[in-house]
Design a protein around this nucleic acid. Structure first.
Lengths: 334, 334
DNA sequence: ATAGAACCTGCAAACGATTGCAGGGAAGGG
DNA sequence: CCCTTCCCTGCAATCGTTTGCAGGTTCTAT
């Protein structure tokens, strides 16, 4: 007999499969002596319950699906870490897929998880996703779903993300307090929700009563070289002393690189703040002031909410829209 | 009727479940008209095969378990990306767990995957793992396993990793070619296999015939501040011009930081090389020369081997011990 | 002595899909 | 007209566990 099953034990002990099953599950109907006997033999035989059979019977898998654009991105890797942490504590297993920023692959992965009968799905949507029907369809069929970071606003499921608007305003207010004469924003592509919100937050903070700072925005991409180039543009505009709020860390790093080449004093002549708290921000000189998005905690929170949904402990219906506090990490660059 | 099953379709069409099953699986025994009918209704009813039932029947899950120390580490995140990529192509799903460098948790995760009947497991062992019995036990029970990066040398299963010895020698040979008068090694803890091998590679290259370079090793940890402190030690030793081979990138970055504070010219007065190709190496000034470990490819390779094992396509028995080529990325720091 | 409670245990039917075997009908050959 | 062969389809067992129900024993209380 290849596999040790409940039946193996039952036969050996001249019991029925049901008694063995109950004994293993510590059911009160079973005599303690029987339980001891069964457990002892189970141990000796190296019995392991067949989870597939159990899942089939219970119609659930205790698996949580996670779909992110790219696992290798620092932010997502951290978020996944957080998800795994919580899932592990609560007895769930996570299965992971990446969309590589392609909608098509997002759809395939989503459906594959649906087929696999995962207990729930945590998603951060891909950049190229321009429809929500694939999510909508599953939600209608009762699949538990939670979005994080890159959420889909129009869908009626829980979301966990940061308040980009508030966070940006927080940064700018800090810079205002530092008495910089000009506060510039190196913005990201305005097609992206988060970039738009960060810019709005910047403008909101600048426009506060009593402030006579004018808005200076240079829009570019989100990579290091974009920051480098924006820095050149800034100088062409004749601005020689200011504070810069960069849309993210790579852009800030690129700007810093150019500033160092030009021997611009940081933060004396120009201050600069990034966004995301990439590991690099702490390794460059000067250490970069930035905004920590608490990726790990975001993952944890998303997992907690999903598991609550799965286990029917959801208090607030699906209206949950959690904006996690960000932290302004004040270091040396501003 | 809540769930649409094969039986639902069978009843509706007044067929038997077996006919429906065969029709869905395009079995030659079934008439084309029947197939068309069945597939049509299946589509309309939104039928999805219950993978758990199928798995139970087929005694396999098409899932691959992955256990790494920490998902958030750049290297592992990349490796996982690679694993997922291959798994996705070949129709497997990956389930992920992290050991947080704790042996106990590694064991729990390993056993949980075993219970879940994964088709195979890919592991990079935790730092605190000091026994191999938990792996050994599963291997004896026929679980397919592949190690990557942090491999367990004594176990008779496929391994994928880099040749630390060769890679280190490659770095040092490059530095020798640059005519540095002294070549120093900032070594990591010699309790770790990889650190020991890198040091040996360093010594090997230095000891080559015709070279009269003497070995200068400063042993410390693997973090940025270790590099910073080692730099100070180096100067105390009176060495003012040399090339440094750091055990990894953070150590190199720490050293660079100190060098910049002291206005040491890089690479003129001192050259420095890191190890791993962390993203940061390209963002600091000067851009760091380092060794690329091809994490993504390593993950791909490990997944390919595992899947070959699972599908019985393994050519070379379990003796596979793949040392992936590393690349010396020559940039500005040396 | 006996009813009732309290305990144990087993039967058998699920869960949903797959598959060996066999039955039934139609077509074709003798 | 009968037998064989080829198609198509269904029966029933199987994968391993769980669980409602019922049967059986022992013990306690009246």
């Amino acid at each position: 007999m290849r596999q040790v099953t409940i039946k193996t034990i039952a036969d050996e002990l001249k019991l029925s499969a049901s008694t063995v099953s109950r004994a293993l599950n510590d059911h009160p109907d079973i005599h303690d002596d029987t339980k001891r006997l069964v457990n002892k033999l189970a141990g000796e035989l190296g019995y392991r319950p067949n989870i597939m059979a159990r899942n089939l019977k219970s119609r659930t898998s205790n698996q949580i699906g996670v779909i992110v654009p790219e696992i290798r991105h620092d932010f997502f890797a951290n978020a996944i870490s957080g998800i795994e942490e919580v899932a592990y504590q609560k007895g769930y297993t996570i299965i992971i897929a990446q969309s590589n920023e392609e909608q098509e692959r997002e759809i395939i992965n989503l459906n594959s998880m649906y087929l696999n009968r995962v207990s729930g799905i945590i998603v951060s949507i891909s950049q190229s996703t321009n429809t929500e029907s694939h999510f909508q369809k599953l939600i209608e069929r009762g699949v538990k779903m939670v979005f994080f970071d890159r959420v889909c606003q129009t869908l009626n499921v829980p979301k966990v993300h940061i308040d980009d608007f508030e966070s940006a305003a927080k940064v700018v207010n800090y810079l205002i307090g530092k008495n910089y004469s000009t506060i510039v924003h190196f913005a990201g592509p305005q097609s992206l929700d988060i970039c738009r919100k960060r810019k709005l937050g910047y403008e909101e903070a600048l426009g506060k009563p009593g402030s006579n700072l004018k808005s200076v925005v240079i829009e570019a991409g989100m990579h290091e070289n974009d920051g480098y180039n924006s820095m050149n543009k800034l100088l062409e505009m004749g601005i020689e002393s200011c504070a810069i709020f960069a849309v993210n860390d790579p852009v800030a790093v690129g700007a810093v690189k150019r500033m160092k080449e030009l021997k611009i004093d940081i933060p004396g002549q120009m201050g600069i703040v990034g966004f995301s708290n990439n590991p690099i921000t702490e390794m460059i000189t000067p250490r970069l002031t930035t905004v920590d998005q608490h990726a790990f905690e975001m993952g944890q929170k998303a997992a907690e909410i999903l598991i609550d949904e799965i286990e029917g402990k959801n208090l607030n219906g699906n209206q949950l829209d959690i904006k996690l506090e960000t932290s302004l990490l004040i270091r040396e660059s501003a």
